[in-house]
Amino acid sequence: MNRLQGSSSSAKRKRELALVSDTLTDGERVLYNLILSKRDMGIWSGDMKRETNLPDHMVKKSLKLLQSKGMIKEVVNIQNKARKHYMAAQFEPSKEITGGDWYSEGSLDKELINVLKNVCVKYISRQKVVTRDGVLDWSRKSGVITAEVSNQQIEEILRALVLDDEIIEVKSTGYGDFENVPVGRVCYKSKSKGGVRGEPKDGAMSSIPCGVCPRINFCTPDGIVSPRTCVYYQKWLDF
């Protein structure tokens, strides 16, 4: 998937395609028109058979031909990766098909997300407090982020970091760290005071075996699973 493809060449391409389409058989034309009509949503080959009533082998053959002529392309549909999904060459798959900005080849681009999260967290922790515009400004100018990433994506990363509890969203009070920020402006602040990123929080329950035990609902004082025979405790108390 090429997210950066420009549109300047599309007019020229259309003309070329018109020429090619003259040489199509009837079956191929019917299929092509159907695929074209689905625009950036594309269509599953199974649905094509149903809608055109063309026999199976014909559909297969025609799709191959259209593809070799560069008129259609196969795309991954996030809703069902196993199905063969086709789209006219001049369209880019819609968000419903790709899953959105964060998806590449039908799955979440976790690597990109983690890299972005890391650089944002590092930047924010160096800054004490920083406004959203401050982060956006930095992301454009600093050159740290090399991938093509929109402002909206940076905002999404910030929101995810808040949900991760890595940074917190606060409103400026105008005092202390907020001295240079207008009162009421939304700011981000690093959460961990020198702590390691991703360190589990030590809640009362989460720091004992029973608190996170998958078998707690089966555990009774005299049952087969019981505190006396519990393997999780054995591990926990193995000094």
């Binding site: 995810a160 949900l163 991760d164 509890d165 991703g198 589990p200 929080k201 030590d202 809640g203 009362a204 329950m205 989460s206 608190g211 996170v212 998958p214």
Partner: peptide
Amino acid sequence: NEEVESIVLKRFGGDAYRIFRLLSK
């Protein structure tokens, strides 16, 4: 919230933790 979130994080992992915090907030 914090106590329950820490249980969710430990029991279900980071993605579930984000989901839970999103819904809780």
